[in-house]
């Protein structure tokens, strides 16, 4: 058994190098397939993180009038935090708002200068994050009631800004994009798998005479199949190495062209931190594809 395994591995490796032209064809189609699979993984990660990023930024921003007492704002904050719809409320004081504005516009001397003259024009601000984007309407209603009705709180709110409409559209767009993307990728993966299978079938078709000779001199099926399986393993491994290598410049390119896009994950750091996982997926897909197509294709020539 071990002797056989050793012989099969040796024969498979020797065949692989001697038939390098044919092996190249297998490696090429396997690489294309693995690149498609790898891009699919990276692409969906990118879309998901963008979507998540946008979702987490859907908030209600409540700006208070400049003359409002800080305590009144903090009381409202505590009340809001008691609502079940609210996940998180963050408070930014007037001073923080001003500092933030200054920092954001530090290059604009004119703006900073005019700010010096005006004083601090900003009111304190509460950012409210709901547990679910669908809950924003009720939060908004609560705020309107509070501002109009509750004693001592009357008229402290300057503005309630609410980006829900735009964000809903954006989310719907991304969602559709994702569905189309997944469908197209699935088709692409399916197509490349079929092409791979066909190419490997052809490489085995070339060897069909050899296979029948092996049968005729008394080799049993597993002994004939073995070296082809090894060749599939080698081709799959090489294709996985090439694809993981090729994906690196691709993620750098994607990072460069999407540098300004709102909310996306950095694919390069994702690639680096998930390198092992990504490589294992590609390696497993490559080997499984190489071995299974070879295994199936050889079957029809073993009937002699």
């Amino acid at each position: 058994m071990i002797v056989n395994l050793k012989r099969v591995i040796r024969a498979g490796s020797i065949n692989f190098w001697r038939n390098s032209a044919v092996a190249m064809a297998s490696i090429f189609v396997l690489t294309v397939t693995l690149l498609v699979i790898g891009s699919l993984i990276l692409g969906s990660t990118y879309l998901n993180s963008t979507l998540e990023g946008i979702r987490s930024r859907v908030d209600i921003s409540v700006t208070f009038k400049t003359d409002v007492n800080e305590n009144a704002v903090l009381v409202l904050k505590e009340d809001l935090e008691l609502l079940p719809e609210v996940r998180e409320v963050s408070y930014a004081s007037r001073e923080q708002e001003l500092a933030e504005f200054r920092e954001r516009h530090q290059d604009n001397a004119l703006l900073i200068q005019s700010l010096e003259e005006v004083g601090n024009p900003f009111g304190a601000r509460l950012s409210i994050l709901a547990t679910d984007p669908a809950q924003y309407d009720s939060v908004e209603r609560f705020l309107n009631n509070y501002d109009g009705g509750a004693e001592g709180a009357g008229g402290i709110i300057d503005q309630i800004s609410f980006k829900k409409d735009i964000i809903d559209k954006l989310l719907a767009l991304i969602d559709t994009g994702q569905k189309v993307g997944i469908t197209l990728s699935a088709l692409l993966v399916l197509m490349s798998i079929l092409v791979t299978f066909n190419t490997i079938s052809l490489t085995i078709y070339i060897a069909r005479e050899e296979i029948s000779v092996m049968r005729l001199v008394g080799a049993d099926n597993s002994y004939i199949r073995g070296p082809f399986v090894i060749e599939g393993v080698i081709a799959g491994t090489i294709a996985a190495l090439i694809s993981i290598g090729l994906l690196y410049p691709v993620v750098i390119w994607i990072r460069n062209i999407t540098a300004g896009v709102y909310g996306g994950v950095d694919l390069v750091s994702y690639y680096i931190s998930h390198f092992g996982q990504l490589f294992l997926i590609l390696l497993a897909s490559g080997i499984i594809l190489g071995v299974v197509s070879g295994f199936l294709a050889i079957g029809r020539y073993l009937k002699v």
Binding site: N4, N15, N19, E210, V217, A219, D220, Y223
Partner: peptide
């Protein structure tokens, strides 16, 4: 794709 030696060795190994 096999040498003379390997062709004959194959039958023995099989």
């Amino acid at each position: 794709n096999k040498t003379t030696f390997e062709n004959i060795a194959f039958t023995m190994e099989a």
